[in-house]
Simulated assay, not measured.
Amino acid sequence: MKILKKIIWLFMLAPIVYLFSIWQQLPESVALHFDINGNPDRYGSKKELWGSALLLLGVSIGVYLMITNINRIDPKRYAKEMQDKYDKMAVAIALFLSVIHFFVISSASSGRISFSPGVVFALVSALFAVMGNYMYNIKPNYFIGIRVPWTLESEDNWKKTHHLASRMWFVAGIIMAILTLLLPTTPGMIVFFAGTFLITTIPIIYSYKLFIKERNQKNQL
């Protein structure tokens, strides 16, 4: 894991190196935004690419450093013993953001999206599956997971909620990844956003019902 944590920095910086290497070949005006069909609908100066590139790099580094240092900033007592799992999640997220970063620069430089928008939805869905795999035994913390008041107040609520969320994210992530690759753009987009909404809201509703049940049991004592 230590070697992987060092190599991931190369992946995070790779898109910047790529942009620098193709800079002289870029036209002064490049595509900066695309519609859902992959067609450019806004152009601008190639210098704007540096702003986007540096912003994405900053987000990648910021998220990576936050997750890999949870044990230092999270007051929950489980943070230190879960750090190895957090590190793996941080690497997965950083790698995902680097791939998206590369796609943004590549699409702008070519003036077209050379891949189906469904590929992006599939990548995000695959990330959901990866996160679901790590979520099953994640301990209470203030940064990662289903962080609502009733899960943070009860370890039992947190555990049951994340057992459910883990299974949902893993299975739904795989199904969504397959469907968004196979379906046309619009149906694939509907599947992606509907699936994302469900795997986000259902665990929260479930955790709230657990909270109400626990509260009623205490009131009956």
Rank of each mutant, 00 (worst) to 15 (best):
G111W: 01
R112N: 13
R112D: 12
R112E: 14
R112W: 06
R112Y: 12
R112L: 08
R112C: 06
I113Q: 04
I113W: 01
I113A: 00
S114W: 13
S114T: 14
S114P: 14
S114A: 14
S114I: 13
F115H: 00
F115E: 01
F115Y: 05
F115C: 00
S116Q: 05
S116V: 01
S116H: 03
S116Y: 03
S116N: 04
S116T: 04
P117R: 05
G118N: 11
V119N: 01
V119I: 11
V119R: 00
V119C: 00
V120M: 15
V120P: 14
F121T: 07
F121G: 04
F121W: 11
F121S: 05
F121H: 06
A122I: 07
A122Q: 07
A122E: 08
A122G: 06
L123C: 02
L123S: 02
V124N: 06
S125T: 04
S125Q: 03
S125G: 06
S125K: 04
A126P: 08
A126K: 06
A126W: 07
A126G: 13
A126L: 13
A126C: 09
L127V: 10
L127K: 07
L127G: 09
F128W: 11
F128G: 02
F128K: 02
A129W: 03
A129N: 04
A129T: 05
A129K: 03
A129R: 01
A129H: 06
V130S: 00
V130Q: 00
V130A: 01
V130D: 00
V130R: 01
V130G: 00
M131S: 09
M131Q: 09
M131L: 15
G132A: 03
G132V: 04
G132M: 05
G132C: 05
N133W: 11
N133Q: 06
N133Y: 12
N133V: 03
N133K: 08
Y134Q: 10
M135C: 05
M135K: 07
M135H: 06
M135I: 10
M135Y: 10
M135T: 07
Y136W: 15
Y136F: 15
Y136S: 12
Y136Q: 14
Y136A: 12
N137T: 15
N137Y: 15
N137F: 15
I138L: 15
I138T: 14
I138H: 07
I138A: 13
I138M: 15
I138Q: 13
I138C: 12
K139H: 09
K139E: 12
K139Y: 09
K139S: 08
P140I: 12
P140V: 11
P140F: 13
P140E: 08
N141E: 13
N141M: 13
N141T: 12
Y142W: 09
Y142D: 02
F143P: 06
F143Q: 07
F143K: 07
I144V: 14
I144P: 01
I144A: 04
G145C: 07
G145L: 10
G145M: 08
G145I: 11
G145V: 08
G145F: 11
G145T: 07
I146V: 11
I146G: 00
I146N: 01
I146M: 03
R147K: 14
R147A: 09
R147Y: 08
R147I: 10
